[in-house]
């Protein structure tokens, strides 16, 4: 994958910030409006896919590869468990351990906001990782040798 034309690359680099921003907005206001961790995470993953589709394999070699997806997916899951466990501060599993105000601000959802952020990270990284895996299968005929190089950790 060598990426697309200069026109696509320029448009993508202009768009990518807005896509990620919109994803973050959907995640952070998930407790107030339609959306939430899963939907926002899908938008974040779409932003990452935009980079890969426009610029080809270069970003994958610069740290945006399969291991990046694996690490952030695991961190998202552990973060979600941590939010659930921190509920014990307020008494029970999954209880709101930070005060939730009334109204429509960011802090009106209690620990739901934190859960949404964790889910958003997990879904975004997970979907991106799934895309990379499928792309690797697709390209496995040509890139078989390069794939095997880093795959032998016993």
């Amino acid at each position: 994958m060598r990426g697309m034309t200069l026109i696509v690359k320029t448009t993508a680099s202009l768009l990518i910030g807005f896509v990620v921003l919109f994803g973050a907005y959907i995640i952070l206001t998930g407790h107030l409006s339609p959306g939430g961790g899963f939907a926002g995470g899908v938008i974040l993953a779409a932003g990452l896919l935009l980079i890969v589709l426009a610029f080809g394999a270069d970003p994958l070699r610069k740290g945006l590869g399969h291991n990046f997806a694996l690490v952030w997916e695991s961190l998202g899951a552990v973060g979600f468990l941590a939010v659930a466990l921190l509920g014990f501060i307020a008494g029970t599993f999954f209880a709101h351990f930070i005060p939730h105000l009334t109204g429509f601000g960011l802090l009106t959802g209690g620990s739901i906001v934190l859960s949404n952020i964790a889910i958003g990270i997990k879904v975004g990284a997970g979907l991106f990782g799934a895309f990379l895996m499928l792309a690797a299968f697709r390209a496995s005929e040509s890139a078989d040798k390069t794939e095997k190089g880093d795959g032998n950790d016993t």
């Binding site: 291991n67 694996l70 690490v71 695991s74 961190l75 899951a77 552990v78 468990l81 950790d153």
Partner: peptide, 13 residues
Amino acid sequence: PLAAGFVLPVVGL
């Protein structure tokens, strides 16, 4: 077990 399952891939790296 859930936490262990999600920590393992990172530790494996």
